[in-house]
């Protein structure tokens, strides 16, 4: 770390996709920021909103189609990391559920909380969670549909106002 460089004081994270592995990085980064005393807010938009919807937030899935690096997960099944995992295999019914189940087990072992618990932990740590107005309108959602920890629904303009002085990170 350079001694002259100014330390990061505030981050704003954006989540626009809704698979399990699309959502975790933002929660880890946001919560990790709080652990370092950095102000943090996470803005969920479009399919990322699935992580906030009470009815779906515990059901996010690992995408097993269109992910050419999925072979990286195979050592969890005691298979070599180089074993090919063709995308057609990922389309077989149950494969995504199985991969999700496996990934969740692995996460629990690593002391990584579930999505709802992670949101609770992040907000207990002083982090803020926002939903995107346009995405809410598009998916016909209201605040009642969302996790109680969501601070509010923001327009893009309001998101930038909240992000004053922050590093904005699109995950």
């Amino acid at each position: 770390m350079s001694e002259q460089a100014e330390s990061i004081k505030k981050v704003s994270l954006i989540v626009s996709k809704g698979s399990l592995v699309d959502v975790y990085p933002a929660l880890v980064l946001g919560n990790g920021a709080r652990m370092e005393g950095i102000e943090a807010a996470i803005f969920f938009t479009f399919f990322g909103l699935g992580a906030l919807i009470k009815k779906t937030q515990n059901k996010l899935k690992v995408a097993t189609v269109g992910n050419p690096a999925l072979n990286m997960a195979l050592p969890m099944l005691k298979m070599p990391i180089t074993t090919p995992f063709p995308t057609l295999m990922g389309a077989i019914p149950g494969v995504s559920n199985f991969a999700t189940w496996m990934m969740k087990n692995e996460m629990e072992d690593l002391d990584i909380p579930t999505i709802p618990e992670f949101i609770e932990m992040f907000t207990d740590a002083g982090g803020e969670v926002y939903a995107c107005k346009l995405g809410m309108d598009m998916f016909k959602l209201s605040m009642d549909d969302l996790d109680d920890r969501v601070s509010g629904v923001l327009t893009v303009g309001e998101f930038y106002e909240k992000s004053a002085g922050a590093s904005i990170i699109f995950t």
Binding site: R34, M35, D111, P113, M121, D124, A125, G126
Partner: peptide, 18 residues
């Protein structure tokens, strides 16, 4: 122990720890 473990084991709630 992690912040999460201390919260889960009822040692200290996360909010109070912060």
């Amino acid at each position: 122990p992690s912040i999460r473990q201390m919260n889960k084991m009822n040692i200290i709630p996360t909010r109070e720890l912060y």
